[in-house]
Design a protein around this nucleic acid. Structure first.
Lengths: 219, 219
DNA sequence: CAGGAAAAATGCGCGCACGCAAGTTTACGT
DNA sequence: ACGTAAACTTGCGTGCGCGCATTTTTCCTG
């Protein structure tokens, strides 16, 4: 899988990235997200501002990364942990729920801060796309037939998209009815259930697709 | 459907946006995408640079928008055109294929330019998410039951994600095209499979999900 | 254990995104 | 018809993203 020698070079790189994550989140919590500049983050991490955005494309990305990194790192294992015994759709769903609810104290506090600022919310939502690669890998691992690779890619992308929809609905309580569509005021804006429920509800419509893909590999 | 008076204010707004689109694409084709500044686009459209990014968040977005606007405008009609007689999954698939292949000459030429520059390619891929709202509307139009709204949202998001995967695979390997000197030094992007095939292949795994949702509405 | 190539970090500079506080235009009520 | 409020545009200033050229660090090979 990974390279047997982690590479000394690669380790420092990861250390720097982690330092930037940590610094970004800490400073954001300390002084408020708007009161922190890239220069401050870079200084706290011991690198130049120019180096900073060799790692992160935007200021928001660095802050959010501290929260999302764990999930994109653990989602694959969480799916794999639920072995071949359970339905693939259930494995993915429960793995997602686990990764987004069984979260540390620090992440929970950071989320509270993220949901307040629009720019950070958007960055957080965009970050959900980062679970797609690891998801693709584990799904492809269970779809061994010829077209499995392509199918896994699509299913992973769809699952990530569904998660995004769930998260959007979850942190959207304070919003007027200014949807893009014309007669979009179609009544029930019931939303704002618990996050696990939102996730399960969003992933449920995709279950038949997962089932079909999984069924094809058995024959 | 829409507001009976289009609104005089709204008309000027759309005209300005269209002018910016047109100017951005024209200048990009004329002088090359890197040789055009926001100031030039704004001047060509008759507005100030500051006004420019009240309409577009990035320079690339404006250029790409000239190509993608038609699709996000027509995708809903394309699905609706295929009436309730055909399977929802097929309607969506064929509508997507139609929108991304039956394209004008100008768009085709612009695409050639977009695929060359990495920044424009990324912007183009990101723009596929814009078909999600109209898709949500038409799908919800055919899913009339209670949970149809949520399901439509997830299915639309998944379909958009699948389209993105297809497009990624389509314009994948532009390696060694580092001849930025002359005009039209065009290295033809070698594609793996025709675009319609890629789209159909990517959307196919989602068909069972569409079927299940559609089947639920009939009883 | 050197020497040299590849890769990352840094300094510098330019153009862009966006907040803020005017000025200007459109829409609507009495 | 006129005045007022809301929306859109504009000028200005600041911080940021990133390309380019240079210096420093890391890794490999003879």
């Amino acid at each position: 899988m990974t390279s047997p020698p982690p590479g000394l070079r690669e380790r420092k790189k990861r250390a720097t990235r982690e330092a930037l994550r940590e610094a970004a989140l800490r400073l954001a919590v300390e002084h408020g997200p708007d009161r922190v500049r890239v220069e401050d983050i870079a200084e706290a991490a011991g690198v130049s501002p120019r180096t900073y955005n060799n790692y992160f494309a935007s200021r928001e990305q660095a802050i959010v990364s501290a929260v999302t990194a764990d999930r994109e790192a653990g989602i694959a294992a969480a799916v794999a942990a639920r072995g071949a015994g359970v339905r693939l759709a259930d494995a993915v769903t429960e793995a997602v729920v686990e990764q987004y609810t069984h979260t540390g104290e620090r992440a929970q506090r950071a989320l509270l801060l993220i949901t307040a600022r629009t720019a950070l919310r958007d960055a957080f939502l965009d970050a959900t796309a980062d679970i797609e690669p690891p998801l693709t890998e584990v799904i492809a691992d269970r779809l061994r037939d010829a077209a499995g690779a392509h199918t896994a890619r699509v299913l992973a992308a769809s699952a990530a998209a569904a998660v995004r929809v769930a998260l959007e609905g979850w942190l959207r309580p304070p919003e007027g009815a200014e949807a893009a569509g014309g007669l979009g005021a179609g009544g029930l804006v019931v939303t704002s259930g618990s996050l696990p429920d939102q996730l399960r509800e969003a992933l449920a419509p995709l279950a038949p697709a997962f089932d079909a893909a999984e069924r094809r590999t058995r024959r």
